[in-house]
Amino acid sequence: MIIKINGKYYKIKKIEKNPNGKYTITTENGKKYEFKNVKIFSEEELK
Rank of each mutant, 00 (worst) to 15 (best):
T24K: 05
Y33C: 05
K32L: 09
I5A: 06
L46F: 14
P19C: 08
T24R: 05
Y23C: 08
E43H: 03
E34H: 11
K39S: 11
K17T: 06
I40N: 06
Y10S: 03
T24W: 09
E44P: 02
F41C: 13
G21E: 03
K32H: 07
E34R: 06
N20R: 08
N18C: 09
I5S: 02
E34F: 12
M1Q: 08
I15P: 00
E28K: 08
E45V: 03
P19D: 12
Y10C: 02
T26V: 11
Y10G: 01
E44Q: 04
K17F: 09
K13D: 09
I40D: 06
I15T: 01
T24F: 09
E16A: 06
K39A: 13
N18M: 14
K13T: 10
V38C: 15
I40G: 06
T24C: 07
K13P: 01
M1E: 05
Y33T: 02
E43V: 03
K47S: 15
I25N: 00
K32T: 15
K17R: 13
Y10M: 12
I2G: 04
F41T: 06
I40Y: 10
E34K: 08
E45D: 11
N20P: 04
T24Y: 09
E28G: 07
E34A: 05
K36P: 08
Y10N: 03
G7Q: 08
K14M: 13
F41Y: 15
G21W: 01
E44K: 02
T27M: 15
K14V: 09
F35L: 15
I2Y: 15
T24Q: 09
K22G: 11
I12R: 00
I25P: 00
Y9H: 06
K14T: 14
V38N: 04
N37Y: 15
E43N: 03
K22N: 11
I3V: 12
T27L: 15
Y33K: 02
K39P: 13
N29C: 14
K13G: 06
E34T: 13
I5Q: 01
E44T: 04
Y33I: 06
I3N: 00
K4Y: 08
I3F: 05
I2H: 14
G7F: 02
N37P: 04
K11Y: 11
Y9V: 09
G7M: 04
G7H: 06
T27Q: 01
K47T: 14
Y9G: 03
K11D: 03
Y33P: 00
N18K: 11
I3G: 02
Y33G: 02
E45L: 03
K14E: 11
K31F: 09
G30L: 02
K11I: 08
K4F: 09
S42I: 11
I15F: 07
K8D: 06
Y10D: 02
T27P: 00
G21T: 00
I2A: 08
Y23K: 01
S42P: 06
Y33E: 01
E28W: 15
I2M: 15
E43L: 03
I12M: 02
K31M: 13
E28V: 12
I5T: 01
I15Y: 05
V38A: 05
Y23I: 06
K4S: 08
N37Q: 10
K8S: 07
Y23H: 03
P19N: 10
N20E: 10
K36E: 14
N37C: 15
T24V: 14
I15S: 01
G7E: 04
K13N: 09
N18R: 09
Y23V: 04
T26H: 09
N20W: 04
V38Q: 05
Y33Q: 01
I25C: 03
V38F: 05
I40L: 10
Y33D: 00
I3H: 01
E28L: 13
E28S: 14
I2T: 07
I15D: 00
I40C: 06
I40K: 04
K8W: 08
N20K: 07
T26R: 01
P19M: 12
I3T: 03
G30N: 07
Y9C: 13
K39W: 12
I25W: 01
E34W: 09
P19E: 10
N6I: 04
K8A: 08
V38M: 05
Y33M: 07
P19H: 09
G21V: 00
E45K: 01
K8E: 08
F41A: 07
Y33R: 02
I12Y: 02
T27F: 15
T27K: 01
K39D: 15
K8Q: 12
E45G: 06
E45P: 04
K47G: 15
I2Q: 08
T26W: 14
T26P: 00
I5D: 01
G21Q: 03
K4G: 07
F35M: 14
K22Y: 14
K39Q: 15
K13F: 12
N6K: 13
K14Q: 14
I3E: 00
I40T: 05
K39V: 15
N6E: 13
K36G: 06
M1T: 08
K13W: 10
K31E: 12
K17C: 15
L46G: 07
T27S: 04
K17W: 08
G7D: 09
T26Q: 05
M1I: 09
G21N: 04
E45R: 01
I2L: 15
K22V: 14
G30D: 09
I25H: 00
I3Y: 03
E45Q: 05
N20F: 05
Y10W: 12
E28T: 10
K22Q: 08
K22R: 12
E45T: 03
E43W: 03
M1C: 08
T24E: 09
N37K: 08
K22L: 14
K39N: 11
N18I: 06
F41W: 13
K36S: 12
Y23W: 14
F35R: 11
S42C: 09
N18L: 14
I3P: 00
I15V: 09
M1V: 11
K32W: 06
I25F: 04
F35D: 02
M1Y: 10
E34G: 02
E16I: 10
Y23R: 00
S42Y: 15
T24G: 02
K36M: 11
M1D: 06
K39H: 15
I12Q: 00
F41Q: 06
K14D: 10
G21C: 04
I25T: 00
K4N: 10
K11G: 05
L46R: 03
K22E: 11
K47D: 13
K32E: 09
I2W: 15
K22P: 04
K31H: 12
K14P: 00
G21P: 00
Y9R: 04
P19A: 13
N37M: 08
N29D: 15
S42L: 10
I5L: 08
K39R: 11
Y9T: 05
N29P: 02
E44V: 03
T26C: 03
K36A: 14
F41V: 07
I25S: 00
N18G: 13
G7S: 04
I40S: 04
